[in-house]
Design a protein around this nucleic acid. Structure first.
Length: 415
RNA sequence: GCCGGGAUGGGGUAGCCUGGUUAUCCUUGGGGACUGUGGAUCCCCGGACCCGCGUUCAAAUCGCGGUCUCGGCCCCA
């Protein structure tokens, strides 16, 4: 027996119905918001990701040399690909570009709850617009999608790395010098962050102020004790979101993200019920295009962890409509067999789902099969029906039967 | 990379500590009772000890290694 590779999953029919349902819902919502879908290759040059995230990522991705000696990897995320696509081919499209994607990603990590080596992300990027409204529109799509899925228990936390950067700059640690400190703060490694800040020459009071700031969480009013451009900016983002009708947002200045390309707003969504891997969405505004050889363009994007979102929905017991088969055609005896296929085919051409016995079973077994196929009706056709050009239509939940002429069948089943 | 639990027909399980029968039970699948009416019942059939090495007269059971899995740590673009 060949086992599935570690950290991968097979999805059976029931699971795929659930997945396609929610996948379709996300796509639909994005389209409603004026986003358009794109698709990029599942493998890319490894360099794309080392440029974005540093050489360290090679340890965490599926990378290999192809037969032409190229350094290739399975994509660990999609933002880099989207921006590469943009820089290569889409720079002349009218701005803003609002695009979304859905696809699988791969990471060479130790699997655990909610973490797989092959997983699915839904994400969106808005390229070429640096306003608070842009950030609100991005967060708004993420929020609308989660709302639409029916998920209840989740928190949207919005931060802004500019606030900490301004504080650090005032304390004498400007620009990129602040990056290592931000990284430690992102990981909540306070002792190490304090040490770095002390080494950078910051005073005890400034250090305490920074640490305290990362612990600020709550409604937009928690910003009142700060000032500066970043504060005003994040406040505007929140105001727009409130106008959009999203009240379950909070400000969390501890959402940091230590990577250099983040330029301002950052946000995360987590579902507390999920345990260790509870983050279901993350995003922010960034500037990556110049890293990939393009001009500097501001973007805002996010990615939803599709698998984790489904896990969260599952723990909450969210229901979804299950596709149902309309008709199961049951031939009785040998003479009606071809007619059964003719009828099934006519129904299918009319867009009515129909299954038909292919195992030559008796009528009892066939009704059983129709039942387990979750069909609404069984269409029974034998010599009696052939004689008067009709079928016996049996409602499988009530057991009621009626005779329907061949000619009226499509019309009858259409509703 | 680290720590701990686990792996028995398609799914769920008993047996493992204390080695020895035809490996238990439920469910699912196929057939029949039932060449014209399902979800009930009865009968029959198919189907498993994760892999390898070792200990032993004898291994699902004990030991070692590996694989996968679950949970946690690290990491999380």
């Amino acid at each position: 027996m060949i086992q599935r590779p570690r950290g991968t999953r097979d999805f059976g029919p029931e699971e795929m119905e659930v997945r396609r349902f929610f996948e379709g819902m996300m796509r639909q919502e994005a389209v409603l918001h004026g986003f358009r879908e794109i698709s990029t290759p599942i493998f890319e040059h490894t360099e794309l990701f080392t440029l974005k995230s540093g050489p360290g990522v090679i340890e965490e991705i599926y990378s290999f040399k192809d037969k032409g000696d190229r350094e290739i990897c399975l994509r660990p995320e999609l933002t880099a690909s989207v921006i590469r696509f943009f820089v290569n081919d889409l720079t002349t499209l009218p701005r803003p570009l609002k695009m979304f994607y859905f696809g699988q990603c791969f990471r060479y990590e130790r699997p655990q709850a909610g973490r797989y080596r092959e997983f699915f992300q839904f994400g969106a990027e808005i390229i070429g617009s640096p306003t608070p409204e842009t950030d609100a529109e991005a967060i708004g799509l993420a929020a609308a999608i989660l709302e639409r899925t029916g998920l209840k228990d989740y928190r949207i936390r919005i931060g802004h790395i500019g606030i900490l950067r301004e504080l650090l700059a005032k304390a004498g640690v400007p620009g990129d010098n602040a990056l290592p400190i931000l990284q430690k703060l992102d990981k909540k490694s306070y002792p190490e962050a304090e040490e770095l800040m002390a080494q950078a020459g910051m005073g005890v009071i400034d250090i305490a102020k920074i640490i305290e700031t990362t612990k600020i969480t709550g409604p937009v009013s928690v910003l009142d004790s700060y000032d500066g451009q970043a504060r005003d900016y994040i406040r505007q983002v929140c105001d727009v979101l409130v106008a959009m009708g999203f009240s379950n947002i909070s400000v969390d200045l501890g959402v940091v993200r230590g990577l250099a390309y983040y330029t301002g707003m950052v946000f995360e969504v987590d579902a507390p019920k999920l345990g260790a891997e509870k983050q279901i969405c993350g995003g922010g505004s960034y500037s990556l295009s110049e890293l990939f050889g393009g001009e500097k363009v501001f973007s805002t994007g996010f990615a939803i962890g599709f698998d984790r979102t489904l896990l969260a929905l599952q723990t909450e017991g969210v229901e979804f409509p299950q596709p149902k088969l309309t008709a199961y055609v049951v031939p009785v005896g040998d003479t009606a067999r071809e007619k059964a296929f003719q009828i099934a085919s006519e129904l299918r051409r009319a867009g009515i789902s129909a299954d038909v016995d292919i195992m030559r079973r008796n009528i009892g077994k066939n009704l059983k099969s129709a039942d387990s196929a979750k069909a609404r009706y069984a269409l029974i056709i034998g010599d009696k029906e052939l004689e008067n050009c009709s079928v016996t239509l049996r409602d499988l939940s009530s057991g009621e039967q009626q005779s329907i002429a061949f000619a009226d069948l499509v019309q009858k089943l259409k509703d």
